[in-house]
Deep mutational scan, measured.
Amino acid sequence: TFVALYDYESRTETDLSFKKGERLQIVNNTEGDWWLAHSLTTGQTGYIPSNYVAP
């Protein structure tokens, strides 16, 4: 799992909003700078900017 370093507000319907400190499970990280992730807090799935999270 990864932890959010910053808050992120989604800009498209495929993005995932999250708050700093939220735990995220990475589903697919082969898309370059945008990873498909599942929030362990909200249960939602969407794309996140990879530079906003850390292991």
Score class of each variant (00 low, 15 high):
Val27Glu: 07
Tyr52Gln: 06
Tyr52Ile: 08
Ile48Asn: 00
Ala4Lys: 00
Val53Gly: 03
Ser10Val: 04
Asp33Val: 08
Pro55Lys: 08
Tyr52Leu: 15
Asp33Ile: 09
Asn29Gly: 14
Asn51Pro: 05
Thr30Asn: 11
Trp35Cys: 04
Thr45Pro: 01
His38Gln: 14
Asp7Val: 01
Thr41Val: 14
Gln25Asp: 07
Ile26Pro: 08
Arg23Glu: 13
Arg11Trp: 09
Ala37Met: 10
Tyr8Gly: 01
Asn28His: 09
Asn28Tyr: 08
Leu5Val: 06
Arg23His: 14
His38Met: 15
Asp33Phe: 15
Glu13Pro: 13
Ala54Lys: 12
Asp7Cys: 05
Gly32Ile: 11
Ser10Met: 06
Asn28Lys: 11
Ala4His: 01
Thr14Pro: 05
Val53Ser: 02
Leu36His: 04
Phe18Asn: 00
Pro49Ala: 04
Pro49Cys: 08
Gly43His: 14
Ile48Val: 13
Pro49Gly: 03
Lys19Arg: 11
Ile26Lys: 06
Arg11Tyr: 09
Gln25Leu: 15
Thr41Ile: 12
Trp34Ile: 08
Trp35Asn: 02
Gln25Phe: 15
Ala4Gly: 06
Arg11Cys: 14
Ile26Gln: 03
Leu5Phe: 03
Thr12Leu: 12
Ile26Asn: 03
Val27Ile: 15
Pro49Phe: 05
Lys20Asn: 04
Asp7Trp: 03
Ala54Gln: 12
Tyr52Asn: 05
Thr12His: 13
Tyr6Gly: 06
Phe18Gly: 00
Ser17Leu: 03
Trp34Glu: 05
Thr41Asn: 11
Asp7Tyr: 02
Leu36Arg: 04
Arg23Phe: 15
Val3Ile: 15
His38Asp: 03
Thr42Val: 01
Trp35Ala: 04
Asp7Leu: 01
Tyr8Ser: 02
Tyr8Trp: 09
Thr14Leu: 13
Glu9Ala: 09
Thr14Ala: 12
Asp15Ser: 07
Gln25Cys: 15
Ser10Thr: 06
Gly43Thr: 03
Leu40Tyr: 08
Ala54Pro: 07
Leu5Pro: 03
Thr41Asp: 15
Thr12Phe: 14
Gly46Ser: 01
Arg11Thr: 14
Ala4Asp: 01
Ser10Leu: 03
Leu24His: 00
Phe2His: 09
Trp34Cys: 09
Gly21Asp: 06
Leu36Ile: 08
Leu16Ser: 03
Thr1Trp: 15
Ser39Cys: 02
Ile26Tyr: 02
Leu36Ser: 03
Tyr52Trp: 08
Leu5Lys: 06
Leu5Ala: 04
Ser39Asp: 04
Glu31Pro: 08
Glu22Met: 04
Glu31Gln: 13
Tyr8Leu: 03
Ala37Phe: 02
Trp34Thr: 07
Phe18Ser: 00
Ser50Glu: 04
Trp35Leu: 08
Gly32Asp: 12
Phe2Lys: 02
Pro49Asp: 07
Asn28Met: 10
Trp35Glu: 01
Ala4Arg: 00
Asp15Arg: 09
Thr1Val: 15
Gly46Pro: 00
